[in-house]
Design a protein around this nucleic acid. Structure first.
Length: 430
RNA sequence: GUGGUCGUAGCUUAAUUGGUAAAGCUCCGGUUUGUGGUACCGGCGAUCUGUGGGUUCGAGUCCCAUCGACCACCCCA
């Protein structure tokens, strides 16, 4: 006998097990996301969780690749990464078939992602995310549409507009200010990174002045930023959103999103609940990302410059779940099983099996309890599983062909013939 | 990657200044061998307090390490 240690029942660090009650919530989230995306005309796509590591090297920073992804070498000496986000995959897939994909195209996907990170509330090592993007549409109406889509998903899950806000900004605001104050191109990224922290830093002006080595420029820059409360573009966007029934947009120039690849509008859905102040979804416009791929290569931009406009967002399951919990919007668990057929005597098992098969053909989700336990125990178990209906089958039912359907929540009973069971269940289940 | 809090039965927790682990829930059985949820009664359940080591006559309680959870920071795709 080997002394091998028995494996632990704990899941791997930072990942979750989804027991039926958990998976029920997961499915609730996904079904609403899918339904609303499809109402907006988005088509579902997917890809493998494995990607060549080089996909993330070009556009994402080295630190993220080296320290925050699961990257390993396979047996064929290839560098593989478990995808940490969908956008590069989406860009890769679109670029691969750029000539045949009609533009604009709307795609969505719900998939799992992996990040090798220290875990924290709302941040695990594996999470699921909806990604919805429009590619081949450069106009403001596409920006408005993806925001409206994210908003509609929240509303579909029961959120009111006061439960969250749509924070919108525009990467071009900073670019314009940089030009106005005459900031050199190479300083843009450095300054942007500093400005991103301005809410947390004590003396941003001093830091800026040190970074760009020019105190008056730093002062002018901050003054311009202070003055910029919105732009004509963002107000136009607000107008379009209002027409689509989105009334909780706020301009927030501090919303920048971490990614370098955004080129225009950026937005976040932000929870307004005091205990759950966090970003629920985020996205923006990224018009240059697809041009990094060599294949395809056809230009669809009017100017022929080779850039392909795209705009989209992502919404994660962990934060969505926290949101629903904070706002008391989590759905109550309902099992897949609609009817439990309890077998009173062993001789009745075949009769129960036949009845179950007949009911399944009529679209009733029916399970048989063939434990041989007493009827009371079988009912108790069905009740514990929250199965809504039971039928007990003993010699009486077997001989008469009539069955008593019991509603476990109300205690109501109704005796019907076999061909009426499905109708009764569906009318009761609504 | 940095700092902090925590880790006791399946779950949630208790254990006076270090003195040889307690309760509720769950589960199982019974009152009630063709109908559950309530109530009452009874029972199983930690070979021991995440793991390894140390201090001590003695450690769940102190020290070190390690793993894990959580919180803040960092980062945020």
């Amino acid at each position: 006998m080997s002394e091998r240690k028995k494996p632990s029942t704990d899941p791997y660090k930072g990942v979750r097990d989804f027991y039926p009650q958990d998976q029920f919530v997961q499915r609730y989230l996904f079904e609403h996301m899918e339904r609303v995306c499809e109402l907006f005309g988005y088509e579902e796509y997917n890809a493998s969780v494995l990607e060549p590591a080089e996909l993330y090297r070009s556009k994402t920073s080295e630190e993220i690749i080296n320290e925050q992804t699961y990257t390993f070498t396979d047996r064929g000496d290839r560098e593989v990464t478990l995808r940490p986000e969908m956008t590069p995959t989406f860009a890769r897939m679109v670029a691969a078939r750029i000539r045949e994909i009609p533009m604009p195209s709307r795609w969505y996907s719900i998939a799992n992602f992996f990040r090798y990170d220290r875990t924290q509330k709302g941040r695990l090592r594996e999470f699921w995310q909806l990604n919805a993007d429009i590619v081949g549409a450069a106009g403001i109406e596409a920006d408005a549409e993806v925001i409206a889509l994210s908003h509609a998903i929240m509303r579909a899950m029961g959120a009111e507009e006061r439960d969250f806000e749509v924070r919108v900004s525009d990467r071009r605001i900073l670019d314009a200010i940089y030009n106005n104050v005459g900031l050199s191109l190479e300083m843009h990224a450095v300054v942007t990174r500093l400005l991103d922290k301005r809410a947390k830093v004590d003396d941003i002006e001093k830091l800026l002045a040190e970074a760009i080595d020019h105190p008056t420029t730093a002062k002018k820059l901050l003054a311009e930023l202070e003055r910029t409360t919105s732009t004509a573009y963002l107000e136009n966007l607000r107008g379009q959103l209002e027409l689509m029934g989105v009334h909780n947009m706020v301009v927030d120039t501090q919303t920048t999103r971490g990614f370098d690849y955004y080129t225009g509008m950026v937005f976040e859905l932000f929870d307004t609940h005091e205990d759950n102040r966090r970003s629920l979804a985020g996205g923006g416009r990224y018009d240059n990302l697809l041009s990094m791929f060599s294949s395809g290569g056809a230009s669809i931009s009017p100017g022929g410059g080779g850039s392909i406009p795209a705009v989209g967002f992502a919404m994660g399951d962990v934060t969505a779940r926290d949101f629903l919990e904070a706002h008391d919007l989590l759905p109550e668990y309902v099992p897949a099983t609609e009817l439990m057929i309890c077998v009173v005597e062993p001789e009745c098992l075949t009769h129960a099996q036949k009845l179950a098969q007949d009911l399944r053909r009529e679209d009733v989700a029916a399970a048989i309890n063939f434990s041989g336990k007493r009827i009371g125990d079988q009912i108790r178990q069905a009740d514990k599983m929250k199965v809504p209906f039971i039928i007990a089958i003993g010699s009486k039912e077997r001989l008469e062909g009539r069955y008593t359907i019991k509603n476990l929540a109300s205690g109501d009973e109704r005796t019907v013939s076999a061909d009426k069971i499905a109708d009764h269940l569906f009318s009761s289940l609504g």
